[in-house]
């Protein structure tokens, strides 16, 4: 995954700088454009591995940029937006974005998303990853939506499965509450942060060992094999 060519279309210099800094730390090439027009010009000029697109651009609406990019190119687009409303999300995804990342997000999460989207394109399909994931004795099969522990199936509700699958997308990393909520639940409301705790508690109980999912106080959760 060295030398990934990333086009960043974002008008806020502070966040653009931080993203460039993070990506250069893993040796990716990032080109930054402030405007939708500049972004479209760059798109036409070169081949890219992934596009990071902010929706609130000064000249052209980000959604429109995504739509036009989709017309000519087959390149993964990840929308980064401060708006987490379901309607924004659905619209962006329908108009050709491959993923939708709500601010605030951390570097690990951003890199993981870029890798995941890029991997999907490399595999030639644009559906989600379908291979089973394994974490120690725990197996998660996204296609069948089944979880088994030591070969014994664990009955999870749909939401519990989504949460566990989400945590398993990067084992050992801390996933922020807000990010999990924004991604697994389509709405985010204030009281719902504890909804997540409730689901985590249920998953822990079903896995029979609370250490599978570690709480990081105030921040989020981490999935890992009990040591």
């Amino acid at each position: 995954m060295i030398d990934m060519k990333v086009l960043l279309i974002e008008d806020d210099r502070a966040i653009a700088g931080a993203i460039i800094d993070s990506m250069e730390a893993v040796s990716w090439n990032v080109v930054h454009e402030n405007t939708g027009a500049g972004g479209l010009a760059q798109l036409a000029a070169r081949a890219w591995d992934v596009i990071l697109l902010d929706l609130g651009l000064p000249d052209i609406d980000g959604i429109e940029v995504a739509r036009r990019a989709r017309e000519t190119q087959s390149v993964p687009i990840i929308v980064i937006s401060a708006r987490g409303d379901e309607s924004d999300r659905v619209l962006a995804l329908e108009l050709g974005a491959d993923d939708y990342l709500v601010k605030p997000f951390g570097m690990r999460e951003l890199l993981a998303r870029v890798r995941a989207v890029h991997r999907r394109y490399d595999q030639g399909g644009d559906g989600p990853e379908t291979g089973p994931l394994s974490v120690g004795a725990l197996t998660i099969d996204p296609r069948e939506r089944r979880v088994s522990l030591d070969g014994v199936e664990v009955a999870l509700t749909a939401k519990e499965f989504d949460v566990l699958h989400y945590l398993a997308s990067e084992v050992g990393a801390v996933h922020r509450r807000e990010t999990i909520l924004a991604d697994v639940w389509d709405m985010n409301w204030y009281g719902s942060t504890k909804t997540l705790d409730a689901h985590i508690a249920a998953i822990r109980k079903k896995l029979g060992d609370a250490r599978w999912i570690e709480s990081v106080r105030g921040v989020g959760f981490r999935l890992g094999e009990p040591q």
Binding site: A14, I15, D21, S22, A25, V102, K103, P104, F105, M107
Partner: peptide
């Protein structure tokens, strides 16, 4: 919404610094 952008920048910078 406006506050979320600088917070993201802080988070990214901080992670980078910590690493």
């Amino acid at each position: 919404h406006q506050l979320r952008t600088p917070i993201t920048a802080i988070m990214l910078r901080l992670e980078r610094l910590r690493d």
